[in-house]
Every structure is written in C-alpha cells, then in structure tokens.
C-alpha cells in the first residue's frame, strides 16, 4: 500500500515536469557595436501536452528570462542585464491559423499569424539577435548569458505543484575587445 502511494506520488511529480522533459536551450551570443545580442533556441520544447494546449485554442505563453551575468570569483555572479521575452500563441480552430504575439519586457513588439504549425513553433522557440545589453563590458571579463524557458499555463497535477517546470540554458564567454 505504501509502495503504491509512493509510486502514485512519483507519477504525479513526473507529470508535473513532463512538459520540458527532453527540452534544452541552446544559447549563442554575439557582440555587435558594443551590444550583447543573444540568440537562443529551445529544442524539443513542445511536448504533446503543450501542443494539445495550443491546439485547443488555449492562449499559451512561452516565456523566456534572459540575463547577462558577470562572473565573480569570490561572490555571486552579478546580473548586469535582464530581459523577459514572451511569445503568446493563440490558435484559431476555425481558420486554423496561429497568431503569435511577441512581448518584450511588457511591451508588445510584434504580432504574427501563420497557418503553418512548424513555422509557428519555430517562432515560439527561436529568437535571434535580441539586444540584451549595451553595457560596457570589462576587458577579459567572464560573462554568462542564462536563458530560462517556461510555458504557461502549467499542466500540473495536484499533488505537488511546486515543481520548477522550466528549462535552463546558458553560455559563457570572455570579453576580449
């Protein structure tokens, strides 16, 4: 009886994290005219549950927290830039079109529509050349760009909702002008 209960609990916990079970974030950074630009792509980001949520017409948000941190040997890394990107997809089951709204730090940047699911998913999971920071980087300084991706709503069970439900990716570089 106890074993069954523990297995049930494990199933619930597993379901809670299944949305990003196989996902990973690939991050690239470029320096252009003193700006740090970030490109990232979430692979295998759309699970069956997320796809079902999108196909049901449920507005589904792909949220990304992007931060630039300066490495510190003796203390916590210092966050010198932060950006929150969101892509909200709404699938119209009547016209079979995806409408994706891009929001950056609370501002609506762009609205795109397509009837191609692959393209829509690509728009939701790939971002290129996003300007992250115009801070002057320290020569030979070590930096990290972290991207945390998560979707909402989270299709969680009721046993333990406090699961992370996100996937992380990061890249480090040393600034040499």
């Amino acid at each position: 009886m106890r074993l069954r209960a523990m297995l049930l609990l494990a199933c619930w916990l597993g379901l809670a994290t299944s949305a990003w079970a196989d996902a990973s974030v690939r991050v690239e950074t470029t320096l252009h005219a003193g700006e740090v630009r970030v490109s990232f792509q979430v692979t295998d980001a759309v699970s069956d549950a997320v796809r079902a949520a999108i196909q049901s017409g449920l507005p589904t948000t792909f949220a990304y927290d992007v931060s630039l941190q300066q490495s510190s040997r003796w203390w916590f890394d210092r966050t010198i830039a932060y950006m929150r990107l969101s892509a909200i997809v709404r699938f119209d089951n009547l016209t079979r079109r995806y409408q994706i709204t891009f929001i950056e730090d609370g501002r609506v940047e762009e609205v795109r529509t397509t009837d191609d699911e692959a393209r829509a998913l690509q728009w939701l999971t790939e971002f290129h050349g996003r300007r992250l920071s115009a801070h002057r980087l320290v020569d030979d300084g070590e930096y990290h760009v972290n991207v945390k991706a998560q979707t909402r709503p989270r299709m969680l069970g009721w046993a333990w909702p406090w699961t992370p439900g996100s996937v992380l990716g990061s890249v480090s570089f040393r600034f040499r002008p």
Binding site: L15, A49, A52, A53, Q55, S56, G57, L58, P153, M155, L156, G157, W158
Partner: peptide, 8 residues
C-alpha cells in the same frame, strides 16, 4: 479541448 488540457 481546453477542458481536456486543463483536466489535470
């Protein structure tokens, strides 16, 4: 469908 998605 949303109800199904949000069933859990």
């Amino acid at each position: 469908q949303q109800l199904r998605v949000l069933r859990r």
